[in-house]
Design a binder for these strands. Structure first.
Length: 331
RNA sequence: CCGCCCUUAGCUCAGACUGGUAGAGCAGUCGACUGUAGAUCGACUUGUCCCCCGUUCAAAUCGGGGAGGGCGGACCA
């Protein structure tokens, strides 16, 4: 697989392809980042972008992880001390998950976001950005909450971070799309260059296949789930024996979340996937890539129940190191 | 600073006028059926009714005070 195909294999969107191809042609030393609001326990959403970072790291990019303590503070996630303590725990989990400790730079936002030059740039950007625009950029992140002034400052800071961290590329979930678009438009207005971005998809809700998997509602798989919890959660997942589930009666689009997890979480991290199956159902199956597994589920060759059991055990293997690290930190 | 509206189950809300200690939808849980889940049946669970004080035999409901949230007014006129 060539560099470009590898780093975009799980992308929902690349902005823009031309700009990213240029980076892919000479990736050594290029800097890419994802910013995360500190969270005590990583969930699959975090790991999805982490997978992309691992790929980028493998092809030569320098990976920067922004532990966005100031952003979390603006988003009312606790006291500054609490947020920073949480950020430390988060960093440990990323390392346990598989990011190279030698080549991953963790940066606390507060180490530069409170500097005078940053703040003056922020204010300059505030002058050139309309309230409407900033609010729309924040809508996905903010959820149903009433907009506060902090909420419109937040995306402006994300835009500036891309400059101040000296990045060549931004990665984020599709929920970050409007923020990145705002950054691309506003950075030039304050004298900086805009950068390309890659967005991961937002995976579907596990139990319904509709909408997005959310940590606030529904079932979320996280770093602290043990094998038993994973089995339970995966087993309760919506999984019709098809790649393209029918829409709901209300016409909402539906995905097969079990397949999504194979595609975005399992295959990127394993060379091959072995489905252990009793002789009665045809014996073991081995897959080298996602497509063949999805085809088999679609054709009926692979039964959803077998797919689920397999998925749970691979997820367990992915999560185990982080889970153990979390446990150590809590002792 | 002034005015109006809102606060009841995890969520969206009804109930308040005409006091009798609470309901619906959705969600959730459990069975049945499927070698998974869903769908479909069948059963079930859920509450400091925002807080305090008062009136009353009795307050989610009436009166007073307070908290949180939302919206509007102000100048131009």
């Amino acid at each position: 697989m060539d560099t470009y195909d590898l780093i975009t294999r799980n992308a929902a969107e690349v902005v823009t392809e031309e700009e990213l191809r240029a980076l892919a042609d000479a990736p050594d030393g290029k800097r890419v980042y994802v910013g995360y609001e500190p969270s005590g326990v990583l969930h699959l959403g975090h790991l999805l972008t982490a997978n992309m970072l691992i790929d980028l790291q493998d092809v030569g990019f320098e990976v920067v992880i922004l532990l966005a303590d100031v952003h979390a503070y603006l988003n009312d996630k606790g006291t500054f001390d609490e947020i920073q303590a949480t950020a430390e725990v988060m960093q440990e989990q990323f390392l346990a998950y598989g990011l190279d400790p030698e080549r991953t730079e963790f940066v606390f936002g507060s180490t530069y976001q409170l500097d005078e030059d940053y703040l003056l740039d922020l204010h300059e950007m505030a002058r050139s950005t309309t309230l409407n625009r900033a609010q729309r950029a924040m809508a996905e992140i903010q959820g149903g909450e009433t907009a506060k002034v902090s909420h419109v400052v937040y995306p402006l800071m994300q835009a500036l971070d891309i400059e101040y961290l000296d990045l060549d590329l931004a990665v984020g979930g599709l929920d970050q799309r409007k923020v990145h678009m705002l950054a691309r438009e506003e950075l030039p207005n304050v004298g900086y260059e805009s950068r390309p971005a890659i967005h991961t998809p937002i995976l579907a809700d596990l139990t319904t296949g509709v909408g997005k998997m959310s940590s606030s509602t529904g079932v979320t798989i996280s770093m602290e789930d043990d094998a038993e919890a994973l089995e339970e959660k995966v087993n309760s997942a919506y999984c019709p024996p098809t790649r393209d589930p029918d829409p709901t009666d209300d016409g909402e689009e539906r995905k097969n979340p079990v397949l999504e997890l194979f595609q975005y979480h399992v295959f990127p991290r394993f060379e091959s996937v072995v489905v252990e199956r009793p002789e009665e159902y045809g014996g073991d199956l081995t897959y080298e890539d996602y497509e063949s597994l999805a085809d088999d589920l679609d054709s009926g060759e692979l039964h959803p129940a077998d797919a689920k059991g397999t998925l749970a055990s691979y997820l367990d293997e992915l999560i185990a190191p982080g889970r153990e690290r979390l446990q150590e930190l809590r002792d």
